[in-house]
Write a protein that binds this DNA or RNA. Structure first.
Length: 156
DNA sequence: GCCAACGTTGGC
DNA sequence: GCCAACGTTGGC
């Protein structure tokens, strides 16, 4: 099983929104590096749901990948912000996976909290100027985040 | 294929 | 609102 970190701006789509929805496609990824990580995801993988562009930025909870990667439908929707005219149904450029909420963190784990954890010292997330919206997380990083976040429900 | 200009992300 | 980082675009 692999671990991931997925960023979302809470004003656009928050962990609470995912809890309300129950299951959602993680669409709108339009960066090749992030897309390539999405394509490595497998059902059962766990992810940290990171709230970006908020004060303070923080991990809000844990999600689970519940589908194989498949084409992001918004790339074909001309009216969508995520439309890509270079994409076709024969050769889709962008992928997504479906995700479900697993557990909210009792204690949101802020970026500063992560910087204080030795397990996170090497993560690109804690480095200045990092813009990658989907990234792999090591088991040690994941466990350290869980320990700090103290989710009410068991995650495993 | 190089690289300058531009656009976007996202912390501060 | 600023700006660092960095990906993308397009002229050449």
């Amino acid at each position: 099983m692999a671990y991931w970190l997925l960023k979302s701006e809470p004003d656009v789509f928050s962990f609470a929104d995912l809890q309300a929805a129950g299951r959602e496609p993680w669409n709108g990824i339009r960066n090749y590096q992030a897309r390539n990580f999405l394509r490595q995801m497998c059902p059962g993988d766990l992810g940290l749901f990171y709230h970006s562009n908020t004060q303070p930025p923080h991990i809000a909870g844990v999600l689970r990948v519940v589908s194989e990667p498949y084409p992001d439908d918004l790339q074909f929707v001309a009216a969508s912000d995520y439309y890509d005219p270079r994409s076709s149904t024969e050769a889709p450029r962008w992928s997504m996976v479906d995700v479900e909420p697993v557990a909210a963190f009792a204690l949101p784990v802020t970026l500063d909290d992560l910087r204080a954890l030795p397990e996170w010292a090497e993560s690109p997330l804690v480095r200045r100027g990092n813009r990658l919206s989907v990234m792999p997380v090591s088991e040690a990083e994941f466990r350290a985040a869980l320990r700090a976040g103290q989710p009410a429900q068991s995650v495993d």
